[in-house]
Each structure stands twice: as structure tokens, then as C-alpha cells.
Simulated scan of single mutants.
Amino acid sequence: MTVPKFLLGDHSEHEDAIFVIHTEFPRFIIDLTKDQIEWFEEFDKQDEAELATETENAIKEATAFYDAEIAKYEDG
């Protein structure tokens, strides 16, 4: 099975949340409504500078993925 880089997530107890799951390293879930990230990886202190850059890029990529997916529904 090939797993896409990004997946949309949904949960009935978090009706207003917009979850995007990033399946490649560094793996995380982001709630785009709050810009909150939950990482599935452990990071060392040495990784903090790189993590800051990765976080910024990850938010941009996740947001672009979500926007593209929603546009498909709206255009469909």
C-alpha cells in the first residue's frame, strides 16, 4: 500500500477542527484551525533549530494540501 504524504482527518468530538496528517518524517498531525502540531517523533535539543524551519514548512505544505483538496470539492 502506498500512503500519501498528507491525509485529512476528522473526529466527531472535535467538530470544528481541521486535521491534516503528515505521514513522512517528521510525522505529525496539525489542527489548521489552531495551528497546533502534535509530533509523532522524538527530537533532541540539537534538532530544535531544524525543527523550527521544518515546522514553518510543514504548516505551509499542510495548508496548501488542505486548500487544494477543498478546491476539488468546491469545483466538483
Rank of each mutant, 00 (worst) to 15 (best):
D44S: 05
I37F: 03
A49K: 14
E41V: 12
L8N: 12
H14L: 13
I37R: 00
E54D: 10
F19M: 04
E38M: 03
A62K: 09
T63Y: 05
E38Q: 09
K45R: 07
D75S: 14
A71K: 14
D35S: 01
M1K: 06
F28N: 00
E69W: 11
F25A: 13
Q36K: 12
F43L: 12
I29N: 01
I29G: 02
I29F: 03
E42W: 11
F65T: 07
I70H: 06
H11Q: 15
E74I: 11
T53V: 09
D75R: 12
W39D: 00
I70C: 01
A64Q: 11
T2D: 13
I37C: 04
G76R: 09
E42I: 15
I59H: 06
K60N: 02
E38H: 05
D44H: 12
M1E: 04
I21F: 11
Q46T: 08
K60D: 05
G76V: 03
A49F: 02
T55M: 08
A71P: 02
W39R: 07
L7G: 09
E56Q: 03
T55K: 04
G9V: 13
D35C: 13
T33R: 10
A17T: 03
Y73W: 06
I29Y: 04
N57G: 00
F65P: 06
D35M: 14
T53L: 05
D35I: 00
Y73G: 07
E50C: 05
I18Y: 11
F65N: 05
Y73E: 00
H14E: 12
I21G: 00
L51G: 05
F65Q: 05
I30V: 09
F40D: 10
D10W: 10
L8P: 13
K34F: 08
E38V: 00
A64P: 10
I37M: 05
F40C: 01
D10A: 11
A71C: 01
D35H: 09
T55C: 10
F19Q: 03
E13W: 08
E24Q: 15
L51C: 13
E24W: 14
D16R: 02
D16K: 11
Y66W: 12
V20P: 07
A64W: 08
D16V: 04
Y73T: 05
K60A: 06
E13T: 13
E61Q: 14
H22L: 05
E15G: 14
I21S: 07
E74T: 11
D67W: 01
I70K: 08
G76E: 10
P4K: 08
D75Y: 05
E48G: 01
H14M: 15
E69P: 02
A64M: 00
T2Q: 14
Q36F: 01
R27Q: 01
I59S: 00
D44W: 12
P4N: 14
D35V: 01
I70R: 10
I21H: 08
K45Q: 11
P4I: 12
V3E: 15
E61T: 09
